[in-house]
Design a protein around this nucleic acid. Sequence first.
DNA 1: AATGAATGAGCATTCATTCAT
DNA 2: TATGAATGAATGCTCATTCAT
Lengths: 210, 210, 210, 210
Amino acid sequence: MRVSSQKSSSATQPVAKIPTRKRGIERVAKLLDAAAAVFAEKGYKTATMTEIAQKAGAPIGSLYQFFPSKDVIADALVARYMEHVGGELDGIRSAAAGRSAQELANQLLDVFIHHAHERSLALSLLDARWEQPGLRPGMLRFDLRASIAGIVRAWRPLLDDGDVQLLSVFLLQTMKSLVQLHDDKGYPGRERVLSEWRRWVAGYLAEIGH
Amino acid sequence: MRVSSQKSSSATQPVAKIPTRKRGIERVAKLLDAAAAVFAEKGYKTATMTEIAQKAGAPIGSLYQFFPSKDVIADALVARYMEHVGGELDGIRSAAAGRSAQELANQLLDVFIHHAHERSLALSLLDARWEQPGLRPGMLRFDLRASIAGIVRAWRPLLDDGDVQLLSVFLLQTMKSLVQLHDDKGYPGRERVLSEWRRWVAGYLAEIGH
Amino acid sequence: MRVSSQKSSSATQPVAKIPTRKRGIERVAKLLDAAAAVFAEKGYKTATMTEIAQKAGAPIGSLYQFFPSKDVIADALVARYMEHVGGELDGIRSAAAGRSAQELANQLLDVFIHHAHERSLALSLLDARWEQPGLRPGMLRFDLRASIAGIVRAWRPLLDDGDVQLLSVFLLQTMKSLVQLHDDKGYPGRERVLSEWRRWVAGYLAEIGH
Amino acid sequence: MRVSSQKSSSATQPVAKIPTRKRGIERVAKLLDAAAAVFAEKGYKTATMTEIAQKAGAPIGSLYQFFPSKDVIADALVARYMEHVGGELDGIRSAAAGRSAQELANQLLDVFIHHAHERSLALSLLDARWEQPGLRPGMLRFDLRASIAGIVRAWRPLLDDGDVQLLSVFLLQTMKSLVQLHDDKGYPGRERVLSEWRRWVAGYLAEIGH
DNA sequence: AATGAATGAGCATTCATTCAT
DNA sequence: TATGAATGAATGCTCATTCAT
């Protein structure tokens, strides 16, 4: 299953222009990387378009050629994250059948660990541009939950829908938590906490999934 | 136990002026409430001092009388949250002895549910000022963790330090997760997820705490 | 009758802030004059807020304190023109009874001649900011027409409504035309044309108004 | 008689390149139509070269091939209007002899009514570029006045020069006024005003022209 | 003390025109 | 010849903080 990253473009919503020539493709990649770095360092509001362009070695006009507004560049970054994670989840799903609960748990937890920074960036970008924090991130959650539900179904095809939903919500939430525990270096017994967490997630997975 | 809300005062950092007369106390409360509302709606960067003053019905000069900068207001709001939660945790600690695992888990989980909005505001304020001088999210976590460790010790005085730490980290993390699951109304089977989560936290608590 | 210059302020439409202190009143007057000069010289789009502020000897922030957008300053200029002309029309109306057709015609024609530049500025400002040119200026026309109708009624109280309307439309249009003929210095026989025009307007006025 | 649309070419002023092949001619027509539409909708300053090219379905480079600057397009549009009106006036002149005053008046008034939108566009383009090098509104007026003078002479060959001038100025001005009265749908008694205006113009024409 | 007008550096964004491909 | 990506100076506007009244 593919996590949707296409803009539904129902109206004349501004979207990133897709570069056609080689030079443009390279430039867009550079711009996105620069934007990710600047947003991560400064936050959405504090980051400036000028700094993004400078960091990418591009004139400000070129930045606006491809990303007609600050919002569009943030959206593009979120979409890129969704594609990365979506791709990995696809891989896990196609190899889910026959795995042990601990193997599956570890694989899922590692996806989030692996993209921890990208994820926290995406969340902060979503948050900073939405009045009611938590509403828009909900979209993100929705897609991922569906993806994870697909994995659970591939892993245990006989599970009923309620249990699939329960497990997918549970897994998503514990993945997020593990990232937080993983990123925080400032508490004692960190190693033990992390391995306990993995054991505990696998235990719950095994309990519900037989 | 009192959760510390004093800055480590490395230098002559500006702090909120403490009002002495009754009228001043009322005005400060109004200003803080207005600030909380505006920050919650707009986010730290987007909120303006002018709007905060307007919402409190106070002139901008008066706002600056008590809170000499935007940062100081944010710090005061975070401190207020810490005091609220700290107070409740104090209460739980003094009545912890003799509670069942499920009772203790529920009480703790309810503290965070109860202050969910205040907490998300405090976190976003901390986050938005990441590289400003002042408090850090880590500091928040540290204080709370210490507070929870105190509760665990009061509940099971014989537990060794490693287990106390493990449990306090675990409890803090699952409290945060429960808030997220609680605030998100957009997924199926929410009721079941929430009750399972409580059951499951209590189970782990019982397992480690004998 | 007073030509309306009050903003109906049905919603949170941005309007010019009215200065309260003496310094503010002087500054607003200076800003309006500067804006009139710059708009007249460059046109609405080409004029820059920076240049207006500079010409008024004010920092850009002060300009925005009183006029929160470029549109608002243009609106203020239009309103000022309406007030000037409205005031003069009021005067003509209260002294209309008993005048000869030629006297009344001359007085009206002189109002527009007198405010020729202010009027052309107001029209160009209205035009430049409205997609369908002619639609918004229509509002201007509406107010003036009503004012002129009041004068005609004061002049000839027994005239029926149809004739009053006819005369007010006719007078407004010929006033505008006279301004154009007056401003254009580039054609031969200008003096004769101008006096013929006045004679001809008075003749029509006398014919319809008995 | 041909209304002059050539610039006085004081220097090496850029002009529209004249297309030679059939495809080029079609493309230029499309570009001019697109430019007219965009200018009419947005005004000279607000209209963008990119949008004009897009509306014509042509790449921006192609637009610049034929019209090397934004000003050149505007000039071309004005020239086109002059040619249209000039052509019609030529026709009226060659059939002027023997017409009644009312017939001549109606024919002339209809020319402006017929090209009302094209005229208002041309005027706004001239106005918007007031201090740019190129044509001036005065020039437009001058050419038309000369054209109309020719018609008056053809109609009444014995009239002395002063009366011819007077009539041509008068006719041009009343033609413009009629257009304004015609375009404005927002006043009462419009039908009566329009027919009165025509009657009244013919009356003056008859009076001066014997 | 209390007030709110003044300040100006800084930001997102635009667009006519060029020129490499 | 035809194309459309590249360019960057210029513009409207914001807002935390100060300080004259």
